[in-house]
Computed example of a mutant assay.
Amino acid sequence: MSKKEALTLATADLLWERGYTGMSPAMILERAEAGQGSMYHHFSGKAGLAVAAMTHMSDQLRSSVEEALDGEESAVARVCAFLDRERDPLAGCRMGRLAQDHDVVADAGLRAPTADFFTWLADRLSAVLADGVRTGELRSDTDPDMMASLIIATVQGGYVLARAHQDPAAFHRAVDGAKQVVTCLAAAQGQD
């Protein structure tokens, strides 16, 4: 592994564990087993390295989401596969936690990878739901964009509840509720 990759991966882990504000260049260098010269050779500083790490995290999450949402199954099955993805509720969402970091939100450059990820996720979920409406699987009055936002908010809120209570069951209840809503949209299709 190159020093650039080691720095990026170390930063990604520290962002998840401590957030941007709680992470220092010294922590990154120690975790990556790299010297200060390596960091500044490859990146402009902490912010540049954080953007690279966030982009890496986003790419990993997108790949995992695509595995769940791709396929020939019904729209409901694909959305439920997304909701059932393997997660550690007590660790939280890699990207969602960054959206709660004051320094990330206050800086457009740092905020961009997180905002881009959630925009992509909303668009991707909306497209799956729109397929369900188009094929008649979901009620014709289903608003795919609104439902995508509800699903994302439920998952992110589930992480918050699980962390607040230190109980993964809180996350699973929220996700099960979202699955119930999506399933009811399909079950109610003949009642338009």
Rank of each mutant, 00 (worst) to 15 (best):
Met1Arg: 00
Met1Cys: 07
Ser2Lys: 03
Lys3Ser: 11
Lys3His: 09
Lys4His: 04
Lys4Phe: 01
Thr8Ile: 13
Thr11Asp: 06
Leu15Gly: 00
Tyr20Asp: 09
Gly22Ala: 12
Met23Trp: 06
Ala26Gln: 10
Ala26Lys: 06
Ile28Ala: 12
Ile28Arg: 00
Arg31Met: 04
Ala32Trp: 09
Ala32Gln: 06
Ser38Val: 08
Met39Gly: 11
Tyr40Glu: 00
Tyr40Ala: 00
His42Asn: 13
His42Glu: 11
Phe43Leu: 10
Gly45Val: 14
Gly45Ala: 11
Ala47Gly: 04
Ala50Met: 11
Val51Glu: 00
Thr55Lys: 11
Thr55Met: 08
Thr55Tyr: 05
Asp59Phe: 07
Gln60Pro: 04
Gln60Lys: 11
Leu61Met: 13
Arg62Trp: 04
Glu66Ala: 11
Glu67Trp: 14
Asp70Leu: 07
Asp70Pro: 00
Gly71Val: 14
Gly71Cys: 14
Glu73His: 07
Ala75Thr: 05
Arg78Thr: 10
Cys80Asn: 14
Cys80Trp: 12
Ala81Cys: 02
Leu83Arg: 01
Pro89Glu: 05
Leu90Pro: 02
Ala91Ile: 04
Ala91Pro: 02
Arg94Ser: 15
Leu98Gln: 15
Ala99Pro: 02
Asp103Thr: 10
Val104Glu: 08
Val105Ile: 13
Asp107Ile: 12
Leu110Asn: 09
Ala112Val: 04
Pro113Val: 09
Pro113Met: 12
Thr114Tyr: 10
Ala115Arg: 05
Asp116Lys: 05
Asp116Arg: 07
Phe117Trp: 11
Thr119His: 13
Thr119Val: 11
Thr119Arg: 12
Trp120His: 07
Trp120Ile: 02
Leu121His: 10
Leu121Tyr: 13
Asp123Trp: 03
Arg124Val: 07
Leu125Arg: 09
Leu125Val: 01
Leu129Cys: 09
Leu129Gln: 05
Ala130Ser: 12
Asp131Lys: 03
Gly132Pro: 02
Gly132Ser: 01
Val133Cys: 14
Gly136Glu: 15
Gly136Met: 13
Glu137Gln: 04
Glu137Asn: 03
Glu137Gly: 01
Leu138Val: 06
Leu138Ala: 02
Leu138Tyr: 03
Arg139Cys: 14
Ser140Asn: 10
Ser140Leu: 09
Thr142Ala: 03
Thr142Val: 04
Asp143Leu: 05
Met147Pro: 00
Ser149Phe: 01
Ala153Trp: 01
Val155Tyr: 01
Gly157Pro: 10
Gly157Asn: 06
Gly158His: 03
Ala162Gly: 07
Ala162Lys: 00
Ala162Met: 02
His165Ala: 15
Ala169Tyr: 15
Gln180Gly: 11
Cys184Gly: 14
Leu185Ile: 12
Leu185Gln: 12
Ala188Met: 15
Gln189Leu: 08
Gln189Val: 15
Gln191Phe: 15
Asp192Thr: 10
